[in-house]
Design a protein around this nucleic acid. Structure first.
Length: 562
RNA sequence: UGGGGUGUAGCCAAGUGGUAAGGCAGCGGCCUUUGGAGCCGCCAUUCGCAGGUUCGAAUCCUGCCUCCCCAGCCA
């Protein structure tokens, strides 16, 4: 793969300026997921951005678990996150961190804020705090506990830590400005009491820091220079800066916000994804229809394709909705170059080659990649009985159809030119098989002068064929922006046909050996072996179809492309 | 009606006072034993709208409009 110059974006501009002006001597970024769910393609955008920046500016990128809410976090999620980042192709080296490792330091800074008169212990209930906060248009009111003495605050806060109070009895809040038009500055909560064991610190703590407090300080501890997050935190930046300015931190990181990724026909919020998984609307976090990284991995998306995608869509501040087609095109791009070709028939139609001897097996040498001889070739058996795709035969072909029809000819890839002599029906009038003949002069792809055949189709020798299950995937939702339909539960918009399971598919025998990696099933798309495969039962996933200008032109295709 | 953002082609996105990059999609052609791949060409007199400054404006100024985010002891 050729390296191309990274696309320009406003964050690169900021960093370049910082380095040139001497404001920064190095670049340290971080990817800070909360281990409360699986990573998705939206996270991939952030991962590629943060790790990519670090690489391009010869800096480093940390992986930090932003684990400040024990209620929702687990080692399962933390491990899955590490695995996903690794799979995507990034390496954090020695720089794996946990916000939970900073709890003591964070606590000390909280005491510092109390000592400097910038934080107090509040004893309002959650409901009261909400009432005191005011609204978007009305200023808030100061809590009656706001004027407690430093000594009293310190005492109360230490007792909070010691576990002397019930959950929710007190909080530690910053003293900023309850009348600020920015709600985040209306005395934000710094610590809450939560008697929940933490997946890493166990029961060492019963008070936990809030994101707004923990995040900037964690960045400072790690010496992060550019703390890149998504747009919804833009309003939090004054608060981010406030903590950096009011705690004796060792570094002054800068927060920069960019627009999160949205993709058509899917949802990207952890909450919605969790709902799909727990509600059994999909098979699990790794369901190939999901935009999760584990789902895409199982579906056969190469990590390099995801990286290309993230590069291609750019980084900006405008809310965007990227067409799923862009991602799919990146997948095709990658797989077209790398995937060996093979032949597989998804909906078999039996063909008897009448002028080919019943007891003969002919082995054809077929190239594994039409454009890359380095991928070599393989032998494919040909016999009197073969299967072709049902869609490749039409009794009454429309104009422009250049596959098989009665009296017509097509080329069997790598074998012979085939002519349809007769259509055989069963008792119900359904086509049960085709009686055909081959032209011996076209053996192995030979092309006698003057012989012009427009269509080439794939085929599989019937007695050699492997039987398999093939899973076809379509968009998960029926509307482009399921999360944007107001007043409607996004689950009502699920596409009932997003998964199509085909059984009795026939594969060329060489496919038995495939375990990892992708194959192109010629003319059908890219496929990979699914983890559900067993010795007796082969299962393949269709990663993505090939582009199909016949279908695009309105040509009928009864579902192979579906 | 408060605050913070954002508007450049169907979808993304460069551009930072000197006359609209690039990608995806689309369209036309060539080539082809995958209706695939590859190759060539076309595709914004105009940058949300209206004024203004300037020899010159997507870039500067004024006003208006759109859409997104914020009232968790979530992140």
């Amino acid at each position: 793969m050729n390296e191309t110059a990274p696309a320009a974006n406003f964050i690169r501009t900021i960093i370049t300026d910082d380095l040139q002006s001497g404001r920064r001597q190095q670049v340290v970024t971080r990817f800070p997921p909360e281990p409360n769910g699986y990573l998705h393609i939206g996270h991939a955008k952030s991962i590629c951005l943060n790790f990519g920046l670090a690489t391009d500016f010869a800096g480093r990128c940390h992986l930090r678990m932003d684990d400040t809410n024990p209620e929702k976090e687990s080692v399962e999620y933390a491990e899955a996150i590490k695995e996903a980042v690794r799979w995507l192709g990034f390496d954090w080296g020695e720089h794996l961190f946990y916000a939970s490792d900073y709890y003591e330091q964070l606590y000390q800074w909280a005491e510092e804020l109390i000592r400097t008169g910038k934080a107090y212990v509040d004893s309002l209930s959650a409901e009261e705090v909400r009432q005191y906060r005011g609204t978007l248009t009305e200023p808030g009111r100061e809590s009656p506990y706001r004027s407690r003495s430093v000594a009293e605050n310190l005492d109360l806060f230490r007792r909070m830590r010691r576990g002397e109070f019930a959950d929710g009895a007190h909080t530690l809040r910053a003293i900023i400005d309850v009348t600020s038009p920015n709600l985040n500055l209306r005395d934000p909560v710094l610590y809450r009491i939560q008697r929940v064991p933490h997946y890493r610190t166990g029961d060492a703590w019963c008070i936990y820091p809030m994101y707004d407090f923990a995040h900037p300080l964690s960045d400072a501890i790690e010496g992060i220079t550019h703390s890149i997050c998504t747009l919804e935190f833009e309003d939090h930046r004054p608060l981010y800066d406030w903590f950096i300015a009011n705690c004796s931190v060792p570094a002054r990181p800068q927060q920069i916000e960019f627009a999160r990724l949205n993709l058509t026909y899917t949802v990207m919020s952890k909450r919605k994804l969790l709902e799909l998984v727990t509600g059994r609307h999909v098979g699990g976090w790794d369901d190939p229809r999901l935009p999760t990284l584990v789902g895409m991995r199982r579906r056969g998306y190469p990590p390099a394709a995801i990286r290309t995608f993230c590069e291609r869509i750019g980084v900006g501040k405008t809310d965007s909705l990227i067409d799923m087609g862009v991602l799919e095109e990146c997948v095709r791009d990658d797989l077209n170059r790398s995937a060996p070709r093979a032949m597989a028939v998804l909906r078999p139609l039996k063909v008897v080659v009448e002028n080919f001897p019943a007891d003969e097996v002919e082995q054809f040498e077929v190239a594994n990649h039409p454009g890359d001889p380095a991928l070599g070739s393989r032998k494919v058996p040909f016999t009197r009985e073969i299967f072709i795709e049902q869609d490749d035969f039409l009794e009454t072909p429309p104009k422009g159809f250049f596959r098989l029809f009665p009296g017509g000819e097509v080329r069997l890839r790598g074998a012979y030119i085939l002519r349809c002599e007769q259509v055989v029906r069963d008792g119900d009038g359904q086509i049960s098989e085709l009686r055909c003949s081959i032209d011996p002069a076209t053996r192995g792809g030979a092309n006698p002068p003057g012989r012009k055949i427009k269509g080439t189709i794939h085929w599989v020798s019937a007695p050699h064929a492997l039987e398999a299950e093939v899973r076809l995937y379509d968009r998960l939702f029926t509307v482009a922006n399921p999360g944007g339909e107001k007043g409607r539960d996004f689950k009502e918009l699920l596409n009932p046909d997003s998964l199509q399971v085909l059984t009795g598919c026939r594969l060329e025998p060489g496919l038995a050996a495939v375990d990892g990696g992708s194959r192109q099933f010629e003319r059908l798309g890219y496929f990979c072996r699914d983890q559900d495969s067993t010795a007796e039962r082969l299962v393949f996933n269709r990663t993505v179809t090939l582009r199909d200008s016949w279908v695009a032109k309105g040509g009928s295709d009864s579902g192979v492309a579906g």
